[in-house]
Structure formats: C-alpha cells, structure tokens
Amino acid sequence: MSEVHTHHVYNLPYSYSDNRIVLVAKDPYWLYAYWEMSEERKNIFFEEFGQRLWEKSIPVIKVTNVSNNSSFYIRINDFTNNWYIQVPDPESLYVAELGRQVTDQFFIHLFSSNYVSTPSSSVSSNTGAYFINYKDLRHGRLDINTGEIYESYNYKSQSTLISGISSPELMHFNLQQSAFGISSAELFGINFAEQLGISSLNFLW
C-alpha cells in the first residue's frame, strides 16, 4: 500500500515496504517484536525454496539469549505483524529472527532483529564496591577505570540498610513487596488525566 497523505487528515502508512524485525524490551521478562515483510522478499523465498514450502512451513520467531547462548521458537501466524515474547532471563542480551519452520530440525531464516537487553529485576550479585572522587573525574584528573579506591565496603550490613525504614507509619513496610515504579499520582489510584489531561504524569493506576 502506498503512503497516503492528505492536507487535513493524516493516515499512517500501513507499510513501509521494509524487510525487518525490531525488538524492544518491555520489562525484565517481556520483549515486544514488530516486523514487516515485502512481497518481493516472499517471492525470493518462492524462487529459492518453492511456494509449496512456504505453505507447508510455519512462521516462527527464533529468540536467542546471546548472553547464555540459548534459543527457543515461537509459532506465530501469517496474519499478524507483532508479538509479545515472554523470556526467562533478566539482564540478558536478546536477538530475534523471523523465519519459517519446516520441521523441528529445519528453520529457514528470513531476517534478524537488533539486539536488546532485558533490564535487571533484582539486586546485583556484583558486590565489588569502588569509590572515586567525582571532582577529579569531572576535571579530567582521573580515569575512572584506574581511579583510586577511597573505601572498600563490607556488604554484610547492606540488607539492613536498604530496608532501613524509620518512619513509624512505615515500620512494617517490606521493600521486596513494594511495587517499584509508581509515579506520584499513580499511588492514588485515580484517573486524573480525565479532567485535566496532564498526561505525562502517569495519572492512572
């Protein structure tokens, strides 16, 4: 379909005639992929493998965790162009490939996505504490990779520190159970945007 525009009402292009799959991370356990494939690319497949193989094969996304070199396949269908993908590993680098699965052993690759990292979902196991003086860094007197270690730290006390809640109302507050990522208004559970439309503010629960 061509990219149509008029002067007053804009319709978004249905397709950009691309052959691509794009991957983004939604959270530590979910990715989102969208893709496009042109008729030309499909015809190339027909020429290489025959139309029959296209019809007999199943469209799939091959998802690879590059960090630990493990993959899995998701069956999709020919009528969609996007998918939410549940993944097992936070803090890992993923890539997705769009392709056709002919048998369990036989996957025909069409094209690959960008690489994307899932965020972390927990406290880091890396406890190598290392301190620098920001002023030295700022004024170019320090290379952060070779900087002087100001303090080393014993992590044993850390768990008590992070949950160091002292206000009486919140004494029983458990950090692990708290929902992170609630912007101020979301805590109200109110639909604020309705009347005021101050939309950037996450006014919704």
């Binding site: 983004v24 991370a25 939604k26 530590p28 990522g181 919704l204 629960w205």
Partner: peptide, 15 residues
C-alpha cells in the same frame, strides 16, 4: 538499572 517511574517500573505504560 534500566527503569522508569511508571507502573511496574519499566516500559509497560508506554508499550
């Protein structure tokens, strides 16, 4: 850590 202050703490509000 990659994060936001939206509901659930990552990108879900905008995606």
């Amino acid at each position: 850590c990659s994060s936001s202050w939206g509901h659930k703490g990552y990108n879900e509000v905008w995606l």
